[in-house]
Design a protein around this nucleic acid. Structure first.
Lengths: 360, 360
DNA sequence: CCCGATCATGGTAGCGCAACCATCAATCGT
DNA sequence: ACGATTGATGGTTGCGCTACCATGATCGGG
């Protein structure tokens, strides 16, 4: 089973002797090629190629016999050869900082839905919030001559930006919104989102508001949400405080732990804005278990609008971002550019919505 | 910005007239090639190739000057050319039925960690629990001449099995365990897992036990968990009942809804085994909100061992499967086979563990 | 000190496919 | 009815890289 042995005989006729150019046949993929199909159908290879790639340009008669030959031989086109020959790859790398966070998974789903229908293949890259790794990934993935690129975030290492800028391919930077994207940009302002939540909490009467988030140096968007809250506090003349932070990935368990830590460090807090719903849900569950009254003792808010936030008791106030849309729009804009259609504006603000629920 | 115009001039000298073989230059990827690096470094292209792929076989002197040339020119190898020439693809498709379920995301992470280190690229395919789509995906992905394939599940459409069997490439079927895998198999017995949970519930004194799961016709593994429970019930001489089922993807919200429906349809129930933790957690939250006593009025159990299950009140009894391990082991076995190392046994049972918590 | 072994490097020939032009037949306009 | 166009098909070349062999240099053993 699973032998990789070449099926073709080592040599077929001629030059059995004499000079250098030995009639060797390289070990090959033992697969049916375009030429085989062409011979079977009695046409030229290029005609088979056309029949498969632009069926309209081949007569119905030939197309039928070619289709039959394809089916009989079980021909599967070799993508590498096609892409090498046409310098057109139908491959689109998507670079995200994490898969642990459901948000990115949903974005990827949004992208894939669109790409798959258009016959493009998604190549997944996970930077794990490491800029050096991002550079390496971009560099590697460029070797695939991608038709376009989707990358999360606008902040890159110097060299990453250079690579992305220099490769001359359609690019969409997603998730956050910025003034000077390299090419296209689909996302939302996390600063505004943070302010939105800050204003909501203030309006609700909370005055001693804190922020919890991990790895804010690496997670620029979380940092922006904090800055938004901070600005809202400043605008309202309320006390601003540094974020409660720690060095670990987000998880519900961590959210619960950070809730307790924050309350211990700053017992005067009356509201906590968590960097994401994973943390916030964990905090809610911890509070429920420990008998901490939410929002009586402390209000809790999150970000992302994960479905589960609507089900907890109390349900979680959060900011809902259109994750699937970000992916779908980014993919659509990329395809538009690739196919030469009008891609629309270079920058799309997908916005976000405050979902006010019981936890505030 | 982002122009796709070829950078090379249309033609460079000579044959401006006369015969057919026009000195045209095809629109190309405008990229630095191996040959450019070779010229810069003053060596033959093949030497550059070796310096990059088998550094040990090139003298340190040359290697250094080649590395410098690579860096200066920003050379990125063209994967397609390499794979076409070597008929060795370094591409591994991973076919899963869903991304909404965190389990598959974790498996993918496990796979990617291993593959990336070995220089392989993961190609993601999502069947959405649709066998026809699976066939199509397999067929498409085979066009990438993959070095190996990882696919979730052992049940495929006839044609899918034929394709997988016929392609002669290392294959790992993951998630569930079966008697006759096509090639290799890494997973666990969902039947046993179901029985394990059934026995636990019975041992705990529950006697009127139901099962909740969606799309059991498509989700074979969930069905096996049901059968396991069913067998445990039969073994104990307890009443067996058909599963509570519905046609929608799993979500916490659906879990809550199904809890209420089940209790309404069968008020005598004293325990419910949910097909997965997403559902079960939703049921727990619903119960908490509606004042349904768990496990007093009804016990609730899940499957997967998602982290959040440990945090709810009551915490969720579940079956923990080693998701990351499944991915990592599958990838490792695949790589072993590809590189010719001993892959070990064709079938690996990763097992699972009952996590008894407060909800039962 | 010569001969074969070992090493580093280079030349050449494809890998399978699509771009480009040429060619030939069918169709159209007037 | 005839040339000009259009449409369908084929021949040739090359995409960028690596497999295969050849070559020359270096080395050690007898």
């Amino acid at each position: 089973m699973s032998s990789h042995s070449p099926k073709r005989p080592a040599a077929s006729g001629s030059t059995g002797s004499s000079r250098a150019p030995i009639a060797r046949r390289r070990a090959t993929t033992s697969a049916v090629t375009l030429k085989d199909v062409a011979e079977r159908a009695g046409v030229a290879p290029i005609t088979v190629s056309r029949a498969l790639n632009a069926p309209g340009s081949v007569s119905a008669t030939l197309r039928a016999s070619i289709d039959r030959a394809v089916a009989e031989l079980g021909y599967v086109p070799n993508r590498f050869a096609g892409m090498l020959a046409s310098a057109e790859s139908r491959v689109i790398p998507v670079i995200v900082p994490s898969l642990s966070n459901a948000v990115f998974v949903e974005v990827i789903q949004g992208i894939q839905t669109v790409l798959e229908d258009a016959g493009y293949q998604l190549l997944l890259g996970n930077t794990m919030y490491d800029l050096a790794r991002e550079t390496e990934l971009v560099s590697t993935l460029l070797g695939w001559s991608p038709a376009g690129i989707i990358v999360a975030g606008l902040r890159h290492a110097e060299r990453t930006s250079a690579l992305l800028r220099g490769c001359g391919r359609p690019l969409v930077e997603i998730m956050e919104l910025g003034a000077r994207p390299i090419d296209m940009n689909v996302g939302l302002s996390h600063l505004k989102a943070g302010m939105m939540m800050g204003r909501h909490l203030i309006e609700r009467g909370y005055r001693r508001i804190g922020f919890v988030g991990g790895r804010l140096d690496a997670d620029y968007r979380a940092m922006q949400r904090f800055r938004g809250l901070d600005r809202a506090l400043a605008d309202a003349g309320l006390r601003r405080r540094p974020p409660f932070t720690y060095d670990a990935p987000s998880s519900p368990e961590m959210g619960g732990r950070q809730l307790l830590l924050a309350l211990q460090q700053a017992p005067d807090l009356d509201a906590l804005f968590f960097a994401n719903d994973d943390l916030a849900v964990g905090a809610l569950l911890r509070a429920a278990r420990d008998g901490i009254d939410v929002p009586g003792r402390i209000a809790i808010a999150g970000f992302n609008g994960l479905d589960i936030g609507a089900l907890t008791s109390p349900s979680l106030t959060s900011i809902v971002s259109p994750r699937l849309d970000i992916g779908a729009i980014a993919a659509a804009k990329l395809l538009a550019r690739i196919t030469g259609a009008a891609p629309g504006p270079a920058r799309v603000d997908v916005g976000c919505k405050l979902a006010i629920r019981e936890s505030t």
